[in-house]
Design a protein around this nucleic acid. Structure first.
Length: 485
RNA sequence: GGUUCCGUGGCCGAGUGGCUUAGGCACCGGUCUGCAAAACCGGUUACAGCGGUUCGAAUCCGCUCGGAACCUCCA
């Protein structure tokens, strides 16, 4: 069988995945800034990494998955003299910053739970790690890669570049960056426009502030991830993930901070997920081009005629590779819903399949194809294509044109279930565990069968049509009648 | 303006040198059915344009056109 390969955005090639420490994997993913409700684009990234996490677990790795909550520190812009996003929103809404943080953190966790994403093993917050961040600022200062200016501390990019090379991840050259940098207000404290704050002195009206050796202030843009990933995963860990839009400058700065503080690169495999677009453009809070999960699930929005369940949304996302752009549209999600139902129906059939002395197809090869797809840089669209090929086989066995042995059936049930539910993280929403409902339906099926036997099709069709209106579909076959939502 | 990426059939979306007619949705025909639905079998539509490399390119190179991300917070 193939081995897991990951496309490393640092080296720009697929590499065999070899954890630093035996079968233990450390994975850090940049989480959301909780200053407003998460939108579907945010969810795509976290759903993609949830799939990565799930597959690593499925392969038997012991994974420590850390995903932060950014509740401080991202500056609005340099022009704002360091006004904090959280603090700004707080003033607008007349709330305490931590109240804002709490509200949107709860919303975020709720949405991710609906999407059936596993919670991370550790979900650290920036405000909970001020001491670690201050220590890291000091380390970088001690190593000579930062300087203090008027109470703020800046990372010295040009000095760092002399010994380490800045821009490796994003493919940028420092000369180009200098040439392309814009003159902005409030930068006179910096030696170079490329330098970035790792500690920022708070202006008098700034709400979120902490004491430090340099000033009452707050940590810089990129420092929290470096401090927290180091604390929980060590100075060098296996996988660091995030959205493509974080590649520069955020992740570039993380690499620089890590190298400056410890002398070596912090991450072995960098992974970046691509954007979910709406109308061909990136979803963005600042431009308002967004669709919220709640709107999508309920259907209460001006973009869709109906709502789609979280599993359908998840399936839709999994039908594209994580590194490709994915455009959201009503037609696309609608097509995914039908495919999703087909897959779930096939799973139901798989559980009840009758066995023969031998299989008419090579089931082991099918199962291998699931692993091969995922081992090739988590290629979920190929996995799903292979699952649909298997679906055809399952249905053929059901109608008797193909056969399966007892051993193969057990294997296929285990792995099909594993990849669909454990790896892709889908939920079989068509499943009913309501025994009362089953009894009522059994009665209706019996009445209908009797009407059909008496050729009273008016009654049988009435039952079928009314149930269809209620969202329940009847399927007749030689073995009897079944029903699904 | 700079950096990077993309452009696949009616729609979504894999594939990156030769055999995947990927897969899903839609559509058409057939089997099954009291009629349907589902399922199964079969079919239709393709690699943005132009030029080059090659025995051979959707896949490599160049140009043109179109789109996206980053260069300011952003998943």
């Amino acid at each position: 069988m193939s081995k897991l390969h990951i496309y490393n955005t640092l080296t720009k090639q697929k590499e065999e995945f070899k954890p630093i420490q035996d079968d233990h994997v450390g994975m850090y993913v940049c989480g959301p800034t909780v200053y407003s409700y998460v939108h579907l684009g945010n969810c795509r990234t976290f759903t993609s990494f949830d799939m990565v996490y799930r597959y690593l677990l499925y392969l038997g790795y012991k994974v420590r998955y850390v995903r932060n909550i950014t509740d401080v520190g991202h500056l609005e812009s340099d022009a704002d003299q360091g006004e904090d996003k959280i603090a700004k929103k707080a003033r607008l809404e007349q709330l305490e910053p931590m109240e804002i943080v709490q509200r949107y953190t709860v919303d975020f966790r709720n949405v991710m739970r609906q999407l059936n994403a596993h919670p991370p093993n550790i979900e650290p917050t920036a405000t909970g790690h001020l001491i670690e961040q201050i220590q890291m600022v000091q380390e970088i200062l001690d190593k000579g890669f930062a300087y203090e200016s008027n109470g703020s501390v800046y990372f010295d990019v040009e000095k760092y570049n002399e010994s380490h090379g800045y821009g490796e991840l994003s493919g940028r050259k420092i000369e180009d960056l200098i040439a392309g940098s814009r003159e902005l207000d409030g930068q006179e404290e910096k030696r170079s426009p490329l330098d970035f704050a790792i500690w920022k002195k708070a202006s008098p009206e700034h709400i979120m502030r902490w004491p430090s050796p340099w000033s009452d202030g707050f940590p810089g843009w990129h420092l929290e991830c470096s401090a927290m990933s180091t604390k929980y995963l060590g100075e060098t860990f296996d996988i660091h993930g995030g959205g493509m839009d974080l590649k520069f400058p955020h992740h570039e700065c993380e690499i620089a901070q890590g190298c400056a503080a410890t002398g070596h690169k912090p991450v072995k495999y960098w992974m970046h997920t691509n954007m979910l677009t709406l109308n061909g453009k990136k979803m963005s809070k600042s431009t308002g081009n967004t669709l919220s999960p709640a709107e999508l699930f309920s259907g209460e929005n001006d973009k869709l005629e109906k709502g789609y369940s979280p599993s359908v949304v998840r399936f839709f996302m999994m039908q594209a590779h994580y590194s490709s752009e994915l455009d959201f549209s009503s037609d696309a999600i609608s097509a995914s819903e039908k495919g999703f139902i087909k897959l779930m129906t096939a799973y139901g059939v798989l559980l009840k399949l009758e066995t023969s002395s031998q299989s008419s197809k090579n089931v082991q090869e099918m199962v291998d194809s699931f692993y091969d797809a995922m081992n090739d840089d988590f290629n979920t669209p190929i996995l799903i294509a292979n699952l649909f090929e298997t679906t055809k086989y399952i249905n053929s066995v059901h109608v008797g044109t193909e056969t399966i042995s007892k051993e193969d059936l057990e294997l296929l049930q285990k792995e099909f279930r594993g990849f669909v539910f454990d790896v892709l993280g889908l939920v079989n929403e068509t499943e009913s565990d309501n025994s009362k409902m089953d009894e009522v339906m059994a009665l209706l099926m019996e009445i209908r069968a009797e009407s059909r036997a008496k050729k009273d099709f008016a009654t049988s069709d009435l039952i079928r049509d009314k149930l269809q209106e209620a969202g329940i579909t009847i399927k007749d076959s030689k073995e009897g009648t079944t029903w699904t939502f």
